[in-house]
């Protein structure tokens, strides 16, 4: 069952986005997030959505994987959009007691839904196309200026690398322990909330025990290889910005300008 989680999984490939510099990808992702929330009318929202779809299509990742990543948060999308329908002010179209639906509410719901979906797609695109090591390398480089404030950038990045590295391992382990307890007749599917939580103890205890054991073993292994933090450490793969990255930055800036212009020339809907 844990195999079905598509969110945050790296899929090797050779597409344009795979070849981009991870630092540029992160910065462009942030730009896109700003873009998505800067779109105040249908024209600019349309531009953003179209560009997100374009990115998905050129990313060399099956569209199915993107749809799968939505599965996890579909409930959140539904709840926020339904809440937003009732949230708008203005003349009600329909009214039940204290609840009223307004045109603004419907607009809000559409915007929120499209925004969340775009957000998930674009951030999935980053994790699908970037290996966890590249990702943390890039984060470490981007956070380097924070060293002036005595923030341990390298240590934070190393912790992130390790955490990301062990997500699949722990998922696999959870799967294995669950199978082992199911083989002993553990019933994890039926019963109410409390019964289900209680049924998880035989899984959680061995999982914690093994997580601590792994942490200890990893620490020993790192020590054996004389790891002592970031100072003086060199990299095998040095991140480099090339023509492709520059081109992608230019295209994104174009979109940004486009969305800002649309916001100026067309009336805001929310």
């Amino acid at each position: 069952m844990t195999r079905d989680i598509a969110l945050g999984q790296f899929i090797p490939g050779k597409g344009i986005i795979h070849r981009m510099d991870a630092r540029v990808k992160i910065l462009l992702l942030i730009t896109y997030i700003v873009l998505i929330f800067c779109a105040f009318n249908f024209v600019s929202l349309g531009i953003v959505t179209a560009s997100v779809i374009a990115i998905i299509l050129i990313s060399d990742i099956p569209v199915k994987m993107y749809l799968k990543s939505l599965k996890v948060i579909i409930v959140i999308i539904l709840i926020t959009s339904i809440l937003n329908i009732f949230y708008g002010s203005g003349d009600p179209l329909v009214q039940f007691g204290i609840f009223k639906i307004t045109l603004e509410g419907i607009y809000r719901a559409i915007f929120v839904t499209v925004r969340i979906i775009c957000l998930i797609f674009i951030s999935s695109c980053l994790t699908f196309t970037t290996s966890p090591t590249d990702l943390t390398d890039a984060i470490e480089r981007l956070m380097k200026p924070l060293k002036i404030f005595h923030i341990k950038v390298h240590e934070i990045a190393m912790m992130m690398t390790i955490a990301l590295r062990f997500v699949p391992t722990l998922l696999e382990e959870t799967d294995k322990i669950m199978s082992a307890q199911k083989a002993r007749g553990a019933d994890m599917e039926s019963g109410g909330m409390i019964k289900k939580i209680k049924a998880m103890t035989p899984v959680l205890i061995p999982l914690f025990v093994s997580a601590f054991r792994r942490a200890y073993e990893l620490a020993v292994a790192m020590e054996c290889r004389c790891y002592q933090g970031g100072d003086g450490r060199t990299r095998m793969k040095v991140l480099k910005i090339n023509k492709l990255d520059v081109a992608c930055i230019l295209v994104t800036v174009l979109f940004l300008v486009g969305v800002i212009l649309c916001n100026i020339f067309f009336a805001a809907k929310i």
């Binding site: 294995k176 199978s179 082992a180 002993r184 103890t201 035989p202 899984v203 205890i205 061995p206 093994s210």
Partner: peptide
């Protein structure tokens, strides 16, 4: 299972 000792709880 393989290494069943890890399922003791």
């Amino acid at each position: 299972f393989q290494y069943p000792e890890y399922q003791l709880f």
